[in-house]
Simulated assay, not measured.
Amino acid sequence: MIRGIRGATTVSNNEAEEIIEHTKIMIEQMAKKNNVEPDSIASVIISVTADLNATFPAKALRLIDGWKYVPVMCMPEIDVPNSLPLCIRVMMTVNTSRSQKDIEHIYLNEAIKLRPDLVEE
């Protein structure tokens, strides 16, 4: 079955190193919590808010062992007034036997505000 795993995080500054570091942490948690191996990933789509342009967050995936061939694409998030700033969002599409309700979505830092109903206490 193909399922989507959501992730989101925020950074404090529009700095390449911080964007890559926080994206890598989020992606690794998404994979670990859902027992995802790189070969089971169909694709990863990453969006960033308009205030983040110092680097491509997709570079973070290339720092993870075994992720060389995972297809990844970056794009801008819709610039909605009063939306969460400095935010990186991920949609990882994977092949898994988990049911939809058993997928663990990852929201870190200020991004917890986006889906508090999906964040473990």
Rank of each mutant, 00 (worst) to 15 (best):
I78E: 07
R98S: 10
D117H: 08
I45G: 14
M30N: 06
E37L: 09
R3G: 03
R115G: 07
E110T: 09
N53T: 06
I112N: 03
L108I: 01
K101I: 05
A58S: 14
E104M: 02
Q100H: 15
V36M: 00
F56W: 14
I25N: 00
T55F: 14
E120V: 00
N109D: 07
T49D: 15
N53E: 08
C87M: 11
Y107M: 09
V80E: 13
S97N: 07
K101P: 08
P85Q: 08
T93Y: 01
K32W: 12
P71F: 06
P76E: 13
D79T: 06
V119D: 05
P57M: 06
V48Y: 07
A54P: 04
P85C: 05
F56K: 12
I41S: 06
T96Q: 14
P85H: 03
H105L: 02
L118I: 00
K113L: 06
C87Y: 04
E110L: 00
E37Y: 15
T49H: 11
A111Q: 07
R98E: 05
S43Q: 08
V94S: 10
Q100C: 09
L84R: 01
Y107D: 08
K101R: 09
D117V: 12
P71V: 12
M73V: 10
N14E: 06
A54M: 11
I20M: 04
M26G: 01
V11M: 13
E77Y: 05
K68E: 10
A42R: 12
A50Y: 07
L61H: 08
V70K: 11
I46F: 02
P57Q: 11
D65N: 13
V90R: 08
E18V: 09
V72T: 15
E110H: 02
A50F: 06
V44E: 03
R3V: 14
N35C: 02
M75S: 10
K32G: 02
L63C: 04
M1E: 08
A8L: 08
V119N: 12
